[in-house]
Amino acid sequence: MLNSEFMLNAFVAGTLIAVVCGVMSIFVLIRKLPFLTHVISEIGFSGAAFGIFAGLPPITGMLIFTSLAAVLTSVGANKFSSNDSLVSVISALFMGSGALFLTLAQGNASYATSLMFGSITAITKENVQQIMIVAGLVLVTIILLFRPLKYDSFDPVGSRYSSLNSYVISLIFLIMTAFTASVAAQMVGALLIFVLLTLPAAIAFYWGRNFFELIVISICCALIGTWGGLYLTYVTNLPVTFFITLIESILFFGTLLAKKVQQ
């Protein structure tokens, strides 16, 4: 399977994406941000369309749009109280722009589909290098910010009254979420990034007894879904996103069942 170049690219990219998503999903769930993550991933689609229109690599367009959305949401949430309405408006605005840029760029339907749902054949060597850089940046940032981020995520009220700058931590985290969404979209597509940014952690919370275990289990779940998905796609030629969502869902419902039986 790994003899073909596109599968090797997909495997390396998938592994990086799974590790980053495994770590980030823990914080996404603790900070109660699944909705925002879904919105950011949709905005990633618009960003990619903008990239095609502007003659930039789609990932650059995604990074610009998702980061901009993260900053706007963060600044807006700091100034206004109705965060969900604000996120909805920003999402609608960026998605509308996505439709516009796709039309202006005269992008074809199949490209739009691959942006929305992901594709392993579309991952080139350059994509892998871009994913490596962005994934590395996200992981290093999270490691450097680990303790303050953990405090701010588990105990937001306490963190606000400490000497930490809670707002800056939140902003950096949202930008890192935007970066993660941009790289993950290469494989699972803009519409389904939240699968890898929520489900691995959701499963880990049932099994992990401490924070280290949470991270390890979450990364393992993301890797099982991604590697399993790649293999099944290679064998069946069906979409990788379908298999990743299927495997993650089986792991999640299997966990629920196992916990029910344990009780």
Partner: peptide, 15 residues
């Protein structure tokens, strides 16, 4: 400081 109300992520295994 010990605030009056806390919003600690209580669903998670935090000892």
């Amino acid at each position: 400081f010990v605030p009056q109300t806390r919003n600690i992520a209580e669903d998670y295994p935090l000892n």
